[in-house]
């Protein structure tokens, strides 16, 4: 009886998954293997994927670098928040969440306004005699945009793990003669690995498929895989190739998160994937 009830509770979610995730996935797969003109089965979309491998490589590179920078920036922040009093924790947690309340498109456009050659930063630099710098349309600007947009996704899971670490373990390590550095490396960090893994995943997955940040902040040379897919659907009139690319991207994301889980020795159960 009890079991039946819990099954019933999961029905809405299952229906949701089937209608909005599984069926669309099936449609994507169908398109990936059909010809745009005749609708007949074909491998040609899959065969064409080879030409896009460099783009995939570039997208992975950009998002891995962004995820690592997010980790370096986010860990101290999460650590700091986790060791404040509960009230301060709530406040700081809110502050981390706050930027996410605003549209991500607007926040990226704001960076364009700041960084462009005639933007606020360059106008100020010019006025004080330093001269204009090449800020926008560089790989650095794209990384900046990714880090800026996805940093909260790193801080929040890290914080959630760090705040739960039993302080008695830290005290024990200190009592047993560990220096602060040793305590961190041997106790805190290993215990926070699940947070690191889910943080990395949550930054990597949206970053690898983004199509707006690179368009706005990158040069014409930084065209990422998300941009190519968007183009296939919007301009290219070739949804079939777009579907094949999406399929490959999805497999790539699964493989990358799998590798990440393997490397960190996590069994994957702690990983939060949104």
């Amino acid at each position: 009886m009890k079991r039946n009830k819990t099954v019933l509770l999961s029905v809405p979610y299952i229906v949701w998954m089937v209608v909005f995730t599984l069926i669309p996935l099936g449609v994507v797969a169908y398109y990936a293997f059909t010809d745009p003109d005749t609708g007949a089965f074909t491998w040609s979309n899959i065969r064409e994927l080879g030409t896009f491998l460099p783009v995939f490589g570039e997208s992975v590179l950009y998002s891995v670098v962004s995820a690592l920078i997010c980790l370096l920036l986010g860990y101290p922040v999460a650590y700091y928040i986790a060791h404040r009093s509960p009230m301060v924790q709530k406040l700081l947690y809110m502050l981390v969440m706050l930027p996410m309340c605003m549209s991500f498109l607007l926040r990226t456009l704001a960076w364009v306004g700041l960084l462009q050659d005639t933007g606020i930063i360059n106008n100020t630099l010019d006025a004080i005699g330093i001269g204009r710098l090449k800020l926008i349309r560089t790989p650095g600007a794209v990384i900046l945009g990714m880090v800026y947009n996805y940093l909260p996704y790193m801080i929040l899971p890290l914080y959630a793990i760090l705040v739960k670490i039993d302080s008695r373990l830290i005290e024990a390590a200190e009592d047993l003669g560990c220096t602060p550095a040793q305590t961190f490396l041997k106790v805190t960090m290993p215990l926070s690995t699940p947070g690191i893994v889910s943080g990395m995943t949550m930054v990597f997955v949206p970053a690898v498929s983004t199509f707006y940040i690179s368009q706005k902040l990158g040069s014409p040379d930084t065209m990422l895989i998300g941009d190519v897919i968007e183009r296939m659907y919007k301009q290219g009139n070739n949804a079939n190739l777009g579907a094949a690319l999406s399929l490959l991207l999805m497999i790539l994301v699964f493989v990358c998160t799998g590798i990440m889980n393997k490397l960190t020795g996590s069994d994957g159960e702690d990983v939060v994937v949104v």
Binding site: T51, P54, M223, V228, R231, Q235, G236, N237, N238
Partner: peptide
């Protein structure tokens, strides 16, 4: 034409 243009862009 669109695929050629995409190649130009890439």
């Amino acid at each position: 034409v669109e695929s050629l243009f995409l190649k130009v862009r890439l």
